[in-house]
Nucleic acid binder design. Sequence first.
DNA 1: GCCGTTTTCGGCCCGACTGTTTTCAGTCG
Length: 587
Amino acid sequence: MDKKEVAKILEEIALMLELKGENTFKIRAYQNGARSIENLEQNLEELVKSRELGKVPGIGKGLSENVTELINTGEMTYYQELKEEFPQTLFDLFKVPGLGPKKVKVLYEKLEIETLGELEYACLENRLTDLKGFGKTTQEKILQGIENLKKYRGKYLVSTGIMVLEELRDYFQQEERVLRFSEAGSLRRRKEVIKDVDILAAVKETDRKALGDYFIAFPRVEEVIAQGATKISVRLDLGINVDLRLVTESEFPYALHHFTGSKAHNTKIRQMAKKKGLKMNEYGIFDGEERIPAKTEADVFKVLDLPMIPPELREDQGEIEAGEAGELPPLVEKQDIKGLFHIHSHYSDGINAVEEIVQEAVERGFQYIGISDHSQTAYYANGLKPKDIERQHREIESLRGKYPEIKILKGIESDILKDGSLDYEEEVLEKFDYIIASLHSNLKMDRDLMTKRLIGAIENPYTKILGHMTGRLLLSREGCDFDEEQVFKVLQKNKVAVEINSNPHRLDLDWRKCKKAKTMGISITIDPDAHKLSGFDHVDYGIGVARKGWIERKEVINGQSFSDLKVFWGLNLEDKKSEQGENTKQS
DNA sequence: GCCGTTTTCGGCCCGACTGTTTTCAGTCG
């Protein structure tokens, strides 16, 4: 049983305790415990074995005993007993906005509602209005919430959020009463999947109403969910919600920090403030009645004797402690990227010619660019046969003459076959400057076989990069199952880099795993997996993931100059010319 | 249920908005 499953069970327990009306601090203890387990750096099973689980912050005697039982036997008596008290369908009700444990408890106890369908029916029968704490409006909102649940999944890729954000930024820039504007929330932290878009604007108090109305007039707004003096929530035509907070200019830095979160990060920061005898909320840090002035978010951290913690790091993953110790890493930045390896051309399923890709790379100021099309087994993506490779390599060699300002590399994204081998014979493999090994099919393989398959690919001496490690597609497909510990060890031993695939649907390697790679000294590549020129822009998302994962420039292979790359991979472009004058078909 | 350089008992982060109330509870972030 992995950490995520254990954490989920603890969360469920917390929810059930709420339904029972238990002590709120006991509930919080289970929620905190769930987070501690999920964020655990160490191996959970080993902690249980060595009886050190109780030493983990947030895990005391009670939780430690329960989790130990769960790990050892696969079951937890306490959890089972609680579960028997409630029908499992009841938990669907929490997906309806505005329904929390207290209201769900009433619905369950008074109306015997156990499912979303029953709830919808009860609303249509007008049966909620008589309940204490409910009214006509609540009933209508619940009905609307159920409607929306059917219509929207309620989760969006970070790329959707960024698209919305850019439009909103333009929109707010046209309004001169907006003194400052920023994104906030999970989008600013560059989470891979977001629930809504949080934005923040500084305006004079007298302009609040006008700005709220201006926001509501944003063309994509389809429904106003809530409108108060400082907070307005809307739903856009895309289904995604946007929350706007209006603050004064002097509150802005504090509000920006507060609404950027994460919740866990904020809680810890506020505790720090409290220890220093200060009170902290979204409007400031107060010494008695007086707000300590701050112009920027960095000033806010300064009040607490902390360096500026980049938003991406604010997940309570040790960033505050690192800040206190002066050990925050210098995170990789967009301008650090010197070249790219994972680009598809029209030889396989990309839409651009190799020369167009090269021109784009030159224009963007890259030192090197690698072409890596699909390999022969990927027939669905028009994978390259050996004769296609010959042709592509000759084209690359002629382009090398034409564009001396950039190094053009011959790469390939080789499918990892079922048995872990790469997709060409050795005499073909040796013609490439580098090989990205990626899984594309048979992702549902059994864990042990999948582990062997990945290890086989990594141990192949021609493999330089492991592409989109798990094969996951965000919001639609789980990644494959394998023994992460083993695979990371083999990556480390064989000096194979692991890719952060920057396509917003993938963002694989996950940021939560980056720190592990970092600690083990495994190198990272940040690559767009571009199939058209605009796909180059996806690198921004990959940078976000890398930064969330504490990655520095020195750990990123394509953060290195070409000369360093030559050392790292022993690249020698002169050695790999294809046979001249060979007869190949033109397509 | 967790935690401890003012503590092994007595705390546990904070505020806005909404809807239902008539001063507040519940939800959300």
